[in-house]
Design a protein around this nucleic acid. Structure first.
Lengths: 248, 248
DNA sequence: TAAGGGAACTTGTACAAACAAGCGAGCACC
DNA sequence: GGTGCTCGCTTGTTTGTACAAGTTCCCTTA
């Protein structure tokens, strides 16, 4: 059973994407939406809050809400799973495990995963037949068996882990920056050494806050762009300084 | 007057950052927080919703909320304004206008800003004395006079525009990818041509949805990292495919 | 004509109440 | 000892009400 406010949000979103409310135009008032959907004002407020969070709609006290954009943004699943993002957008993808081994956890990994062994996997992933992503993932010991059971050319690790052991990636932190390609990355991706790569380092946990994996993903320049919509109210994105070890 | 729920959120956030609720521990229940703050449950829910949106706290039906992280994230202002981010983190920054000229709007710029002229500004910005950012910004005609009135070494354009004409940047869309440094960028940033840069393209609008500027910012690799916290519920970040013009 | 004052409208905040749905611990039973 | 079930706790959804605060537009007034 989907919540009422989610259905109202979906309906509004569809209207916006279909062009019923063009960019820059006003949304109906809460009161009107409430009577139209036969719901309380609070419920309508929850619905539009979803759209505001998606960056589709802007809101300020006293004035009617306005439409800011008309492009769908798919949020977490897409950000987390390369395969789910690619599939949702109709791209052909491939994947191949290059190497996979268990090893003792390093000090920072112990702090994160709780000690013991970890499973380190190096994958090469392709989009439309071209290699675009080198993925170096470290899994906590408790998921290692499930990961080792996967096929070497498994397209969607996220989905496979959900289907085999019911694992859900629920929270993540992502660090995005640019790095030059090392010799190994360059060979795998078919680019020159030192050429730019877009790096996404991420740490993921389950619903309960239990750490699952940390990963260092490097995209070939030009193959993928990250997109963020934000409003002045709230959003979870910040800059961070790099090493800042300048000078000689 | 700050809203009640914001004060409760701030109090909870301070407690988390101070270590009163360590990472992985449980937050008090809504009922307890409500009696403790002498507020209704709805108000408390709004407060914790803020923390959930910040990625600080995880929430799922039936179970107590848990603390996911203890690092502050400053959201929009920081993402938008290099100066505000740097100052909030205690970095010394500098800025210098390299060139500035009015020109006719190109076709896509016309579509965005509504035709006429635009003002194109090239700025070089430094962090801790080292050049780290080349910023190519195109302003809509209606803000051009205010921008032209700024000092060439103005540290915070965002703040200066707020103080001079009350302009507030309220919504933005950001595209993040990696590109090789061109000859000009390389010279300005003091890096080799072709070395990796982190590029952030952004489009910003006011409260009313009126476009203000679009910008192409290129950070020297290693100087800045973008950080995103997200939960499975909602967040405004997605991947996007690049040109995908592979092959010969 | 231009400035100012309001009135109507719209979103934001806060409270109260009720039920639904999921979680976890403890208990009974096999 | 382990399995399954129930019960209490906790969060999620929805409705209703009231007031606060900001915007917009019209109308009056100088």
């Amino acid at each position: 059973m989907v919540a009422r406010y989610e259905r109202i949000a979906a309906e509004l979103r569809d209207d916006i994407l279909a062009g019923a409310y063009p960019v820059g135009s006003q949304l109906p008032s809460e009161a009107e939406l409430a009577t139209r959907h036969r719901a309380a004002r609070g419920t309508v407020r929850q619905a539009v809050a979803v759209l505001v969070a998606e960056g589709l709609v802007g809101s300020r006290q006293g004035a009617r809400r306005i439409v800011l954009g008309n492009a769908r943004s798919q949020s977490f699943a897409e950000l987390h799973s390369f395969a789910q993002w690619a599939r949702a957008n109709g791209y052909r993808i491939g994947g191949q495990v290059i190497s996979q081994r268990r090893r003792a956890a390093t000090a920072p990994e112990s702090a994160r995963f709780g000690g013991g062994e970890v499973l380190e996997v190096l994958r090469l992933r392709s989009l439309e037949g071209e290699p675009v992503l080198v993925e170096r993932t470290v899994y906590a010991e408790w998921v290692a068996p499930a990961v080792e059971a996967l096929a070497a050319d498994c397209a969607s690790v996220t989905e496979a882990l959900y289907e085999s052991v019911g694992l859900i990636f629920a929270y993540g932190e992502h660090l995005i920056d640019a790095v030059p390609a090392g010799a190994g990355d360059a060979r795998l991706l078919g680019v020159r050494r030192g050429s730019p790569l877009l790096r996404q380092r991420r740490v993921t946990t389950t619903h309960e806050g239990r750490p699952v994996e940390s990963s260092d993903d490097r995209y070939r320049a030009g193959s993928v762009t990250f997109s963020i919509r934000n409003s002045i109210g709230a959003n979870p994105l910040t800059r961070r300084a790099g090493d800042l070890r300048f000078g000689p």
